[in-house]
Design a protein around this nucleic acid. Sequence first.
DNA 1: TAACAGTATGTAATAATATAACATTTATAA
DNA 2: TTATAAATGTTATATTATTACATACTGTTA
Lengths: 132, 132
Amino acid sequence: MEKQYTMSKNQKIIFDLIDKSSEPMKAYSILFNVQKKGIKAPLQVYRALDKLVEIGKIHKIESRNAFIACQNSSCQISKATAFSICESCENVSEISNSKLSKYLSNFADESGMKYSKYNLEFFGLCKKCKSK
Amino acid sequence: MEKQYTMSKNQKIIFDLIDKSSEPMKAYSILFNVQKKGIKAPLQVYRALDKLVEIGKIHKIESRNAFIACQNSSCQISKATAFSICESCENVSEISNSKLSKYLSNFADESGMKYSKYNLEFFGLCKKCKSK
DNA sequence: TAACAGTATGTAATAATATAACATTTATAA
DNA sequence: TTATAAATGTTATATTATTACATACTGTTA
Ligand SMILES: [Zn+2]
Ligand SMILES: [Zn+2]
Ligand SMILES: [Zn+2]
Ligand SMILES: [Zn+2]
């Protein structure tokens, strides 16, 4: 039985907002949306985001400086993340493909470096945008 | 015979600086370093960086907001990039592994999305930092 | 050559993203 | 209970990136 992390008040507010969003959210847009709930300063947002990323409830889309909720319940600690990003509509979704994650988690080259984490972002056109 | 791109004055100054650097460089550090050469404003730096990224002479390390020169001469247009990043010393190097790039370039899943580009960042400890 | 289009430059102002520093409070556990 | 870690509140500031507008350079073609 694994002990499960309990989100704090601010973490919960911010997670719920991101989780309900259909698109990646940026920090200051989050801030704007939670001001009515008493979260007034950027730092409060960034602290919650940091923690949520750390525990794998959300992921940062590095190329967009934006955050999405983890779609992959097994991704408790986010050490292996992959996303597809539509360059037209900016839709982002988390890729959950066990072959891919196995391949990347086992990847090793001649550098002598042991990789403990990766982040992969694919870019292209989504189905919808392709057919336009 | 392929026509080769000729870098402009500012592009050349900034590329040379990044190319000589042993570590990824951030935009404002670049700005500081080229001020004696007459490049005085952030926008001049960002414009050159944008173009250099576009033509594949440099790459942006998204998780670090920093730029490195392409190590892989074949990477003329940067649509397939992979890096290893040491989380201790922040050393970054470009991975050039044909199996990996083939695997990722051909990756397709059920999403119906055609990927035209990817960026992969591996994290871990480099040889040197591991043995400390 | 002259006119044009495309690319690059210069400059100022400002927007967007993220962190430092410090004081206080709340939760967890020995 | 007392100590420790984690979270919060607040102000100020640092860092990263873009908008807007004016000008200049480069190569092409009428
Ligand atoms: Zn996930
Ligand atoms: Zn799309
Ligand atoms: Zn490259
Ligand atoms: Zn290292």
